[in-house]
Amino acid sequence: MKLFSRKKAGILWLFPVLLLLVGAVWYALLQVLLGSLEGGNGQFSLSVYETLAGNSRFWSSAFFSFYVAGISTMISLVLGIFIARGLYHYLEDRYSRFLIWIPMVFPHFVGAYLVILIFSQSGWLSTAAASLGWIDAIADFPILTNDSRGIGLILTYVWKEIPFVVLMMLPVYQEMNKEFGHAAAALGAGPYQRFKDIEWPFLKPGALETGLIIFCFVFGAFEVPYLIGASSPEMGAVLAYEWFYSGDWSRRPEALAAMTLLTGAVLTAAGFILWYVRKLRSRLGGGK
C-alpha cells in the first residue's frame, strides 16, 4: 500500500516551513501575549496594560519608535525609488550597479558604527568641518548620534534600507512596459505627469509593501538603537528588552505587554496594507 501519494509528498515538504514560520512564530507571540496577561497571583488580568498605559516612558518610546520608523521609511522609499529609476533608465552598466549593494553586506549594527565614525562629534565630518574652518572645537559640531531626535538612527536606517528599496523596486522597473510611458508622451504628458500617472501606479503596490517591511523592521528594531540610540527616549524594543532582562522579574509582564502592543500595531498596519496592495495588484493584471 502506498502511504503517500505524490501530491501529499509536496504538502509534507511544506510541513517544516509551516512549523518554523507559522507554528513557532505564532506560538511565540501567543506566549508573549499570555505572559503579559499574567496577574500577580497567576490569574489572567489586564492590570499590566493599565500600568503600562500610565507609564510615560512607554508612551514616549512608542512615539519615538513610530517617528523614527516613519521618517526612515519615507526617506528610504523616496531616495530608493529615485535611485532604482536612475539605475534603470540611465545606468545600463551591470558592474557599476553592483555598487549599490555594498551597504547590504554590512549588518545594521555596522551601519550604526559607520554613522558614528562619520557623523559623531569626533567623527570624520567634524574633522572635515574643522579643517575647513567651520568649527573650532569638537563641541561645536552638532550632536547627530546618540541624540534624542533620532538623527543617527535615521541616517543608519536610510543607508541600510535604500539598497533594499532598490532591490525590491528594480525588478518592478524591469518588468514595467516602457511603451506605456511612450504612449502617454505621445498623448502630451510631460515627464512629471508620466511619473505620476503612469509610473507611480505600477510602483505603488511594491513601494507600499517595501515601505511596510521597512517600517515594521525599524519600528520593532533592537540592534541599532541599542548601539547608537539615546538613553532617552528609547526605541520600544530596547525598552522591552531592558525590562525583560533587567533581572527584576516583576517587570517581565510589562515588557511582554509592551512587545504585544508593538507587535499588535505592526500586524494591524500589515493587515491593512497587504489587503490594499492585493487590491491594487489585481487591477494591474490586465490591459497589456
Binding site: 514560520l21 507559522v22 512564530v25 511565540a28 506566549q31 508573549v32 511596510l212 520593532g220 515588557a255 500586524l267
Partner: peptide, 26 residues
Amino acid sequence: KLWLDNLLFLPILIPMTAVAMGIHFT
C-alpha cells in the same frame, strides 16, 4: 493560498525581539 501566502510573509514584519522572548522558555 492567499492566507498561506500572508502567513509565510508575516515573519518579516514581526519584531524578532518578540519572537525571541516568546520562544525562549520553550
